[in-house]
Amino acid sequence: MTGDTEGHSDLDLTRLLQTLTVESDRYAERFGAEHGLHRTDVNALSLILDAARVGRALSPSTLAKELGLSPSATTALIDRLEALGHVERTRPAGDRRRVALEVPAAAVEANRHLFRPLAREFAESWAGFSAEERAVVARFLEVSTAAMKRVGGHDAPQRRR
């Protein structure tokens, strides 16, 4: 670890990031419990919604890879989300063999409603940040997430067993 930069050492930043991660985990657990979702369901829903925001539909196999789940566990997860109306399995017109996970319009609005309180609280907390400060925070979060993925093996090639 490197030294101090304006009073915040690498260790200080690591601890703050760990604290944020723990609180995020706690929030996701409570959120899931309140809405009848398993923790993995919440993570899956987040990934599917993120893909939908950029106009991309996630495939079940991509979802499985992102979550580190087996095909059968992924199928059970998708079945739960589909039964609750959060996702639909569709078949793209160009390749009827593929399955894509899409979020119905009604579910997008319902999920917006579910996540709105946290978004509102974040917005209020960040209101005093300048554009330059927000750019630094965004860069910090992006590189920290990339580091976490590297260390966690998320970006590493899958090993055969």
Rank of each mutant, 00 (worst) to 15 (best):
T5I: 07
T5V: 07
T5Y: 08
E6I: 06
E6G: 05
E6D: 14
S9P: 01
D10Y: 13
L11V: 07
L11N: 03
L11G: 07
D12N: 09
D12Q: 02
T14D: 12
T14P: 00
L17E: 08
Q18V: 13
T19V: 14
V22D: 10
V22H: 06
E23F: 09
E23L: 08
S24G: 14
S24T: 08
Y27G: 04
Y27V: 08
A28E: 14
A33V: 09
H35C: 02
H35F: 05
G36V: 01
L37Q: 01
H38Y: 10
H38G: 11
R39H: 15
R39P: 02
T40I: 13
D41V: 03
D41M: 02
N43C: 11
A44D: 02
S46V: 08
S46W: 05
S46H: 09
S46P: 01
A51K: 00
A52T: 10
A52M: 07
L58E: 07
S59H: 06
S59T: 14
P60V: 06
P60N: 06
S61G: 12
T62I: 09
T62E: 15
T62V: 12
A64D: 01
L67I: 02
L69A: 03
S72Y: 03
A73G: 02
A73D: 03
T74C: 05
L77W: 00
I78Q: 01
R80Q: 02
R80V: 05
L81V: 00
A83F: 03
A83K: 13
H86C: 01
H86W: 15
H86V: 04
E88S: 14
E88Q: 12
E88F: 05
T90K: 12
R91Y: 13
P92A: 06
P92I: 03
A93K: 15
A93L: 11
G94P: 04
G94Y: 12
D95K: 05
R96M: 08
R96I: 09
R98D: 11
R98M: 13
V103H: 00
V103W: 00
A105F: 08
A105C: 02
A105M: 08
A105Q: 12
A106D: 11
A107L: 00
A107R: 00
A107G: 00
V108E: 13
A110H: 13
N111E: 10
N111S: 10
R112E: 14
R112N: 15
L114M: 09
L114K: 06
R116T: 11
P117N: 02
L118A: 15
A119F: 09
A119V: 05
E121I: 12
E121S: 06
A123R: 11
S125T: 13
W126D: 12
G128K: 01
G128W: 03
F129G: 08
F129V: 05
S130C: 04
S130F: 04
A131V: 12
A131L: 11
E132V: 05
E133T: 10
R134M: 14
A135K: 05
A135C: 02
A135M: 04
R139A: 14
R139F: 08
F140K: 08
E142M: 13
E142Q: 14
V143T: 15
A146R: 10
A147Y: 11
M148L: 15
M148D: 13
K149D: 12
R150C: 07
R150K: 11
G152T: 02
G152C: 02
G152V: 06
G153T: 00
D155C: 04
D155Y: 09
D155Q: 04
A156F: 07
A156W: 05
A156E: 05
P157V: 03
P157S: 04
Q158R: 12
R160D: 13
R161W: 08
